[in-house]
């Protein structure tokens, strides 16, 4: 009898406690502007608490964003960037416009890795260490050394090392555009490009007058301007200072002329998995 009474008593107290929390939740007004939207915004977020936005978790991000809606257009959840529908809902909830185009960034490696080895390197297995020894063990002083400093910096397993070519390979689906890898590369081979890029330029060798790229590697840019001439849609702009092509993805129709005409196959389609325009 006493047992049943005790159980009932605790159940009753628990019920009252729950009711109290509910009443406070409903009744206490939001004095801080925007805080009432926290739950609404939190529901739109992926809930994985990955921390890529720079806050302690999805709920912490929702708190900060609902207090300061302008924050959403400076730094948003990288997981949402591909999802236009959710971004639209987030815009309505916050009352600001989110420029996804400027935030959707992917890391791109400017090397295809066909430069041959000058010597066998058996020192510390780190690109930073290897690059200090005579500028690296590749013939091209700008080449990817493939020892994986960027891979170790990546928190999302988006970078792997291709053992045959000896270069880093970036998985554009997993890449969140956090740019942690950019400063790790001693060769400065990784930079952030728009996630909607269509053609990628995979060479970092731009000093045309010293030695043409062909002598350094089979896939190096020879600065021949063939891609610039081949493009019928003005989507390629020739950067005269660096003697490299630059791409305007808004004008690009993905006709493939520039990729086909490139004699050293420096140009490639940007990762098809991420670009909605890719064929």
């Amino acid at each position: 009898m006493q047992l049943v009474a005790a159980i009932l008593l605790v159940a009753l107290i628990g019920l009252l406690c729950g009711l109290a929390i509910y009443i406070v939740y409903i009744r206490v007004p939001h004095k801080v502007p925007g805080l009432g939207k926290i739950d609404e915004i939190n529901k739109l977020l992926p809930g994985m608490n990955c921390g890529a936005c720079g806050y302690a978790g999805c709920f912490a991000f929702a708190q900060e964003v609902s207090r300061n809606p302008q924050l959403a257009s400076q730094a948003t959840c990288p997981m949402l960037l591909g999802n236009d529908e959710v971004i639209k809902q987030l815009e309505i909830a916050l009352g600001v416009s989110i420029d996804t185009e400027s935030m959707n960034k992917k890391a791109m490696l400017h090397c295809k890795g066909s430069s041959e080895n000058l010597f066998d390197y058996s020192g510390v297995q780190s690109c930073k260490a290897a690059s200090l020894l005579a500028g690296g063990f590749k013939r091209c002083p700008y080449a990817c050394l493939g020892l994986g400093d960027c891979m170790r910096a990546c928190k999302y397993d988006a970078i792997s090392i291709d053992g045959d070519k000896g270069i880093a390979v970036i998985d554009y689906v997993k890449c969140t555009g956090c740019a942690l890898c950019v400063r790790e590369c001693p060769q400065n081979l990784i930079n952030m490009v728009s996630g909607r890029s269509k053609v990628s330029y995979r060479c970092n060798y731009s000093e045309i007058r010293v030695i043409p790229g062909r002598e350094r590697c089979n896939n190096g840019c020879t600065h021949c301007r063939k891609c610039f001439v081949a493009c019928k849609y003005d989507a390629i702009i020739w950067n005269k200072e660096k003697a490299v092509p630059e791409f305007d993805s808004a004008k690009c129709t993905l006709c493939g002329e520039c990729v086909a005409v490139c004699p050293t196959r420096t140009l490639e389609y940007f990762q098809p998995a991420i670009s909605p325009y890719a064929v």
């Binding site: 406690c17 109290a20 929390i21 406070v24 206490v28 007004p29 801080v32 805080l35």
Partner: peptide, 16 residues
Amino acid sequence: ATLVQIMELFIMRTNY
């Protein structure tokens, strides 16, 4: 536990 929850809600909404 209830008290702490209520207090947290209250502080969050009144004094950020």
